[in-house]
């Protein structure tokens, strides 16, 4: 592709496309990322939504989009994208619409539907080489219903269905690896707190065709338990601690776009959120903290800078 138009922070858009007035929680890290993503993708888009927090972006008669939107259900947003994409292609082929009426088809779904009931629809959309972009805002739980654990919940996190002293006993599902294993056109992790990295990746995704995947870690003040103003701070910490590696898969290769040379201890990240408070109070749980740290260390040990 051509050289990025986002060389430095100052190149980021200062007029924003997504309309105000969306009823998302104050400090929503998912909305933060979607704003930045929308700025790059632009208004010639149709968002196909799976049930989740972002379903409430459009509540009749209000929509924050300049372009279009279709709400489907929790499990089948990629199939909705298939129907819209195919129909647009048919209309283009029959010359019922002109090419400038064409839209980019974008799935918008949370981590719960993405890693759970929507996974087979996603996998199959890749099989069919569907030309679409899939955006997953990952707040690591079923946030819209009050943060029950999903298969994207990190180990040891407290959720409203993992309230025991060790938190969630499972491990965060590696969606990046699952998607990449399908060999789609593009997969990338992003975070709203790193808008330049995000903008470049969305720019790359937009320049390609075929199935393209973006997963955005989305700090969630209500679900994770922190003051809304900490959203960006926590997002940055997720990257600095190495908990959220920023990377992309392209042409069969995975590369890291930000490699924290000196990683901040995960403890600094865990301490910012009430969902990990039980690791420190009333008694420090070194075993679990060490386990989390060593998982992160093991991940980065395999990465050459």
């Amino acid at each position: 592709m051509n050289e990025t138009q986002f060389k430095r922070m100052k190149d980021l858009p200062t007029t924003h496309l997504l309309g105000t007035g969306a009823p998302m929680c104050a400090g929503c890290g998912g909305l933060q990322a979607i704003n930045d993503i929308y700025d790059v993708l632009g208004e010639k888009t149709v968002f196909i939504n799976a049930a989740g927090c972002m379903t409430l972006l459009s509540i009749y008669p209000f929509t924050p989009f300049r372009g279009s939107w279709l709400y489907t259900a929790m499990a089948s947003a990629p199939a909705g994208a298939q129907g819209v994409r195919d129909a647009l292609d048919i209309l283009l082929a029959k010359k019922k619409i002109t090419p400038d009426e064409n839209l980019t088809t974008v799935v918008l779904a949370g981590d719960g539907s993405t890693s759970g009931m929507g996974l087979s629809a996603t996998s199959a959309a890749i099989d069919r080489n569907l030309d679409f972009i899939y955006i997953c805002y990952d707040n690591e739980g079923y946030g819209n219903t009050g943060q029950q654990y999903s298969s994207a919940t990190p180990h040891a996190a407290r959720t409203s269905t993992s309230t025991g002293s060790a938190g969630f006993s499972g491990f965060k599902k590696d969606l990046f690896a699952i998607w990449a294993a399908h060999k789609p056109t593009y997969v990338a992790t992003v975070i709203g707190a790193e808008p330049l990295d995000l903008a470049r990746k969305i720019e790359t995704a937009a320049s390609l065709t075929g199935p393209r995947f973006i997963i955005s870690l989305s700090p969630c003040p209500t679900g994770w338990g922190f003051d809304p103003q900490e959203t960006t701070y926590i997002g940055k910490l997720a990257v600095k601690t190495g908990i959220w590696p920023l990377k992309e898969y392209k042409d069969g290769k995975v590369s890291h776009t930000k490699n924290p040379h000196v990683r901040v201890p995960v403890e600094d990240y865990l301490l910012t959120q009430a969902r990990f408070k039980h690791l420190f109070e009333p008694k420090r749980n070194d075993k679990l903290i060490d386990e989390i740290q060593s998982k992160v260390d093991a991940y980065w040990a395999g990465i050459t800078p």
Partner: peptide, 29 residues
């Protein structure tokens, strides 16, 4: 401020940020 505002309420006008108080939810990011 404008780039990281989750609610898109800070625009840049005449080389200065402006907050849209009709829509700012007060997250304080």
């Amino acid at each position: 401020c404008s780039s990281t505002c989750p609610h898109n309420v800070i625009s840049v006008e005449d080389n200065s940020p402006v907050i849209d108080y009709d829509h700012c939810v007060g997250c304080l990011v």
